[in-house]
């Protein structure tokens, strides 16, 4: 096993210090209001940190590239998973089939009785008009 790459100690320490520094940065940045850009920046910093962990701590940088390929494939499958799911969940309202409106998910929570029924955007939902719809569907 002596032919395996041995990462120098200095590299490990620099990577760990960078990870701790970036953790601080991401907390600091989260207190600044950048609107929707906050989440983009947070995910960018997280991805830089994740890359440092994968390439240096998990030794992908020095490994045979088949291991990196396997890892990137898992991320690709994740991308497909997200995309296809969101093609459904993001456009349900367009068809007038929003199941969240028909059957609000706060129904089973302990505080159900204390809150008005709402749709996904927090607008109140009229229970009776909804039931009327269901009746029409059945006949």
């Amino acid at each position: 096993m002596s032919e395996h790459h041995i990462t120098p100690l200095r590299t490990y320490l620099i990577i760990a210090a960078s990870l701790l520094f970036l953790s601080g940065v991401t907390v600091w940045v989260s207190y600044i209001d950048l609107g929707s850009f906050n989440i983009v920046l947070a995910m960018f910093v997280a991805t830089v940190k994740a890359s440092l962990v994968a390439f240096f701590f998990m030794h992908l940088l020095w490994d045979d590239k088949k291991n990196l390929t396997m890892f990137l494939m898992s991320l690709m499958f994740f991308g497909i998973f997200v995309t296809i799911t969101m093609l459904d969940t993001e456009f349900r309202g367009d068809l007038g089939l929003n199941p969240e409106t028909k059957d609000p998910i706060n129904k089973r929570a302990a505080f159900y009785d204390t809150l008005p029924l709402t749709d996904t955007h927090g607008h109140p939902v009229d229970e009776h008009s909804d039931k009327h719809h269901e009746d029409k569907d059945h006949h």
Binding site: D63, D64, K66, N67, M70, F71, M73, S74, L75, F77, F78, F81, V82, T85, M86, T89, E90, E100, T120
Partner: peptide
């Protein structure tokens, strides 16, 4: 051994992927 370990890591990423998708969907709804 190492390649098999990465195949296992792939299944791990996909296990968590389902939960990340739940997070993304519900966050975009609420």
């Amino acid at each position: 051994s190492k390649f098999a370990m990465w195949a296992f890591i792939l299944t791990e990423v996909l296990t968590f992927a389902g939960l990340f998708v739940a997070y993304i969907v519900y966050r975009s709804w609420y």
